[in-house]
Design a binder for these strands. Structure first.
Ligand SMILES: [Mn+2]
Ligand SMILES: [Mn+2]
Ligand SMILES: [Zn+2]
Ligand SMILES: [Zn+2]
Lengths: 146, 146
DNA sequence: CCTTTTATTGCAAATCGTTTGCAACAAGAT
DNA sequence: ATCTTGTTGCAAACGATTTGCAATAAAAGG
């Protein structure tokens, strides 16, 4: 049984709720689509196993998983008002997006914590989360001609 | 004459195009609404001077200004798929958003450049832009009871 | 000035991504 | 096997933004 399915089963035991075929399929899809799929992309994949599954069920399930902090969502595309889902919780990891081919590279840097600390000190704020995003050209797209 | 209006007139001279009353009003609104207004908020303000101005004109003008790199837009609200416009170009400045009252604080930190440099070196990428966003509690909301 | 050209507008309708109400369904407890 | 109620599919509503098009009005040229 997949990792996410297990994790969800634990939550269901403590919080109540039901494991359904739809939920199982969506969780499995999230694990296969490790990149940052849209709801439509997840829908397309689960439909291959169960063509009757509805897009609204996909959305409901994704939002539910988000509220459980098992996945997260971001606005990764600029000029697109579309959520992309991250099969990984909001643990601090950040994104680079290639403006040419759309590739997403994930990264982490402990120096962000220093940035946060410095900002908190300067502005007397309490920072609970951060999103950091770089845009530019990936190695492949740099070498290609324009 | 306002700063933005002047800047736009320069662009019109070199690139062609027309200065209209609608554009002038939208530019002035952008200067007055220094916070991060939505298109609707800008529309509401310009309507006070010219009630016949249409929301689609506001959008068209904002997107045009964005393409000229005179303003920028961000997804500042989480869980809201709405653009907020920044009367300032995409010069590197970042945002903190209070999760309780919605206040936006702008800040800058040269250490972000180091972060970028470090990422570029590690991943052989060329970074052209960055967005950084913190969420948490502003000074006021920290002191208030929950 | 007046005419002409064409960039820009207002309007209504279309589009995109997402959410919601509700009756039908099915998980899983009894 | 039955019952309860959480979950689903469907269709419709929704919020934000964009688009096609005929009407309007800048500003250039006479
Ligand atoms: Mn990610
Ligand atoms: Mn700003
Ligand atoms: Zn690329
Ligand atoms: Zn606050």
């Amino acid at each position: 049984m997949s990792n996410l399915v297990q994790e969800v089963n634990l939550r269901l035991q403590s919080d109540g709720g039901r494991m359904t075929t739809q939920r199982r399929l969506i969780l499995q899809a999230l694990e296969r689509l490790s990149d940052h799929p849209t709801a439509e992309e997840i829908h397309a994949l689960v439909r291959k196993s169960d063509p009757s599954i509805n897009l609204s069920t996909v959305y409901r399930t994704l939002r539910w998983l988000e509220s459980l902090d098992l996945i997260s969502s971001h606005h990764l595309d600029q000029n697109k008002h579309q959520d992309r889902f991250d099969p990984v919780s909001a643990t601090d990891h950040f994104h680079f997006r290639c403006e040419k081919c759309g590739t997403i590279i994930e990264f982490n840097d402990p120096a962000v914590d220093d940035l946060v600390a410095s900002f908190e000190a300067r502005h007397n704020c309490q920072v609970k989360g951060a999103t950091l995003m770089f845009y530019g050209l990936c190695p492949d797209c740099q070498s290609k001609k324009d």
